[in-house]
Write a protein that binds this DNA or RNA. Sequence first.
RNA 1: GGGGCGUUAGCUCAACCGGAUAGAGCAACGGCCUUCUAAGCCGUCGGUUAGGGGUUCGAGUCCCUUACGUCCCGCCA
Length: 553
Amino acid sequence: MNKVVELQENIKNHLKEIIQSIGHLDDDFEVILETPKEKENGDYATNCALQLTKVFRKAPKIIAQNIVDKFDCYEYNVEKIEIAGPGFINFFIKKIFLTTIIKEIITLDTEYGKSSIGNNEKINVEFVSANPTGDLHLGHARGAVIGDALCRILEKAGYDVTREYYVNDAGNQIHNLALSTISRYEQQLGIESKMPEDGYFGQDIIEISKELIAKYQDKYLEDTKERYELFKDYAKKYELNKIKKDLADFNVNFDVWSSEQALYNDNKVDRAIDKIKAKGYIYEHDGAVWFKSTAFGDDKDRVLRKSDHTLTYLTPDIAYHIDKLERGYDKLIDILGADHHGYVPRLKASIECLTGDQDKLEVIIIQMVKLLKNGVEYKMSKRSGKAITIRDLIEEVGVDATRYFFTMRSSDSQMDFDMDLATKKANDNPVFYAQYAHARICSIMRQREEKNYHFDLIDEYNLITSEKAMEILKYLAEFPLVVAQSALKRAPNIIVNYINNLAQAFHSFYNSEKVIDELDISKTNQMLALVKATQITLRNSLNLIGVSAPQKM
RNA sequence: GGGGCGUUAGCUCAACCGGAUAGAGCAACGGCCUUCUAAGCCGUCGGUUAGGGGUUCGAGUCCCUUACGUCCCGCCA
């Protein structure tokens, strides 16, 4: 906890003591200290007097006055304290105190922003998990970006994070992938062959068939089990490798790739059914095996084993979640597309049934992305072969811009992705605003080296006093709190807002005062330290959303 | 019919546990490069927070309701 954050905590505790001393003994009462929107309203403000009107049966301003009378300004580095509006208490912190953050940031460097609110809790974040049957599209890209940013943020906030991708390498869609590959293979060899109705019509399947021909020529024209298995595995691997490469190029990396097929191989799927059965929530009806999920809040019971004895998608997925929990995670987070939200209650029902605690699973729903091209909606379809893929985004829009664009929106609002805007007008993208601030600082630092100025790590920077500089300092100091809040709310977009605010504060500062003043060496040294601290914080915050911090632009 | 998410400035979106005068960017308009990067800064314009009701000292935020958009409601995955 840095000194500024510590001060906030101390002020809160002090206020609570005062409130208790004047008669409100409720230990659960929490004093809220917030940063007012308007600068005139101080560095921090509390509404506690307003909240206490009912307890004390007095006007809020009188209560506020009672509190203010007892407040020890000297001890808490408060320069001025005042009562404003309906009864807010506003605190103005001594400027010199805010500058103590500079030394701390420079000392911590890449570590700055860390906190321990996560308490090393083991948390598993599963995201993307697209079927290995084609390219990752726009929706996957959004999920990938938000999932990855969330993981980075959780780690910074002190969680022990595992990034996991669940590969659906069994089931119907893989069957169709195999049939599609066989069909393309035959077509490439000049044989008339019909694609399956639910087949995959993308260019990638044709590529796979070409590779198979290069490898085996026309050896597999006969319809055999061997051919089916071989082509299936080949296509699966091809698609999965492509996904892995696309994600890696998108700056998204996973710790664990879990296979659905492996769950079958290890007999974990049958065991999952047995476990539910042992709890007494399995019954048979119309020749199928059902899970009585309505007992756990689902709106209808779910089939686990169909009357043709094959399993539904849900069954291995239950086994998968049980497996994750057995691997020792305190919490599972699934990041799912909005089209799967109806699936959540049944999954949670299974967790509730088997562990008695459905809150072990947390689901983040990512709303749909609508693609616009030339002003009209461009339907995404994995099978049309015409959809915009994650690869297209990397090449046409760029990794940084795409990541920034997806992260800046809250995951529960739908968004339009305007292809023309994202590509043609790339320079207007807000990501450049933040990166530019960083590049400007780097430029100052280059000058520093040329002119051989240094900045010493002193405790108090007495020559930094301007309003613009104070604005920056306040943002710098709250960074660890912002990260913590972003982690707790599972909301990476909070970081983007923060980056924007900090960049703005810096640009404004930059335009109003010179950092390097050749006539005032000691002030220059102090200003350089402030700028350095800003650079570190900008870079660390950009890093949380996987966006680069360029030296030059 | 049931449910999830959304509806805030012309457009795209913010708004911390219910707080003070609802903020940014884009667009429009007017200024600022002899000075560390003008991909920037400063200013102007822009709002019945979809409509209605309720809760209270106080509501964009909580509750009810209506409308609209979107997604889901399978022994598909």
